[in-house]
Nucleic acid binder design. Structure first.
Lengths: 213, 213
DNA sequence: GGCAGAGTGTGGCTTAGGCGACAGATCGTG
DNA sequence: CACGATCTGTCGCCTAAGCCACACTCTGCC
């Protein structure tokens, strides 16, 4: 299954589009593999050559759309920078909010898909960040931090904030929320927790520092 | 090349749609087979499995669209009747007029395609009429007339009238023109030429009849 | 319980479509 | 004129997609 084969790309696209169209008409659970294949003018057997099952399709559907949204605002040739991180945050907040607003998972009967979808979104965000961070030259002087770690922290933090904002988006604007997030993620929690910044494990933490809880 | 194979239908559709899209951007002569194949996400070699060449595609493009327009207004389960013939006439008049109004053949550089297109439209109309007329039981008493003959007469007459109306559509409305056409085609020219109707070859024509001119 | 109906995965065989390469056309340009 | 560039048809080889059929699993219903 060579992804560069035009037939493969086309069939995948047809299936995903058909699925999207069906989702506007029925709940996820009411959609059968047959339905999707038929709508896509693709053989049912071919469906299984592309996706594990209905859930695999959902996975790709959600993931592709999100990836596309990210790459739309942040083309892959854009290097990492604080400015761009800010754009990323805004994009994620808006996407998550808009996703929770309408779309499939909002149907009462599909409520159980939310965890699936959310974990997918987070993992896509993780992958996106990782690809980005791996281009960044490691800072000198500071202790080395694996890009994987940074990607994990950022993806969970941003995504979580997205979910939260989706629920309470009337409290403040995207821009405002993004500003706060950015400050926290770049500057660390030190100033908020009233401890001195940049305290490595070996250094003496001011006051109770992290252990304060 | 089994026409019922979904792959075949899909590829054909893709090629024709791509061609239509390209026609809104460039002239027919500026469009290459490569362009069409690429836009349709189909291999160039596959193009030739479906169409003779660029002209073959044009042929199908024009023919399919016209056929679709006809079948849209006159589904195949509609039996022949004067009422339906009237609808057919209106449809053809409007289609031809609208076709000459915008669309490909209007580009100055594509003016030479008009005869090709016109003969295609006429032949599609002929085929449509023939399929229709073959369902009609032959009238009793009158001399037998092959449906092919009727289809030929009707298709040329209606199509020609369509072309004419396309040029001078400001003279009268479609409805009016259709009424006149219908009267002529059903009643024959006898009343206009002031001769007695239903004059078979063997009967004595009143006055100079056809030879009058 | 049993049975009919609809959906699901899977496998074997056939066929349309993708790929690369080829020999000609056609055409603008030095 | 020759040249490079671009497009055209065509061919052989390979692979994705279509088709049919089978063995399940559910689910509703008598």
């Amino acid at each position: 299954m060579n992804e560069s084969d035009p037939r493969v790309r086309r069939t995948r696209k047809l299936l995903i589009e058909a699925f999207g169209a069906l989702l506007t008409e029925k709940s996820f659970h009411a959609i059968s593999v047959q339905d999707v294949a038929e709508r896509a003018t693709v053989n049912r057997a071919t469906f299984y050559a592309h996706f594990e099952d209905k859930y695999g399709l959902l996975d790709s559907f959600v993931g592709d759309a999100f990836k596309e949204a990210l790459e739309h605002r942040l083309p892959s040739d854009m290097a990492f920078s604080v400015r761009h991180l800010r754009i990323l945050i805004v994009t994620v907040l808006e996407y998550v909010a808009q996703f929770n607003g309408r779309c499939a998972s909002q149907r009462a009967t599909d409520r159980d898909l939310e965890p699936l979808i959310q974990s997918k979104l987070q993992s896509v965000l993780h992958a996106f960040l990782l690809g980005w961070l791996q281009e960044v030259p490691p800072a000198e002087g500071a202790e080395p931090i694996a890009p994987e770690t940074t990607a994990t922290v950022l993806s969970w933090a941003i995504f979580g904030a997205g979910l939260d904002w989706a629920r309470y988006s009337d409290v403040d604007t995207v821009e405002d929320r993004a500003r706060q997030l950015l400050a926290l993620l770049i500057g660390g929690t030190a100033s908020v927790l009233n401890v001195s910044p940049r305290a490595p494990a070996s250094a003496t933490p001011t006051r109770e520092a992290v252990g304060a809880r």
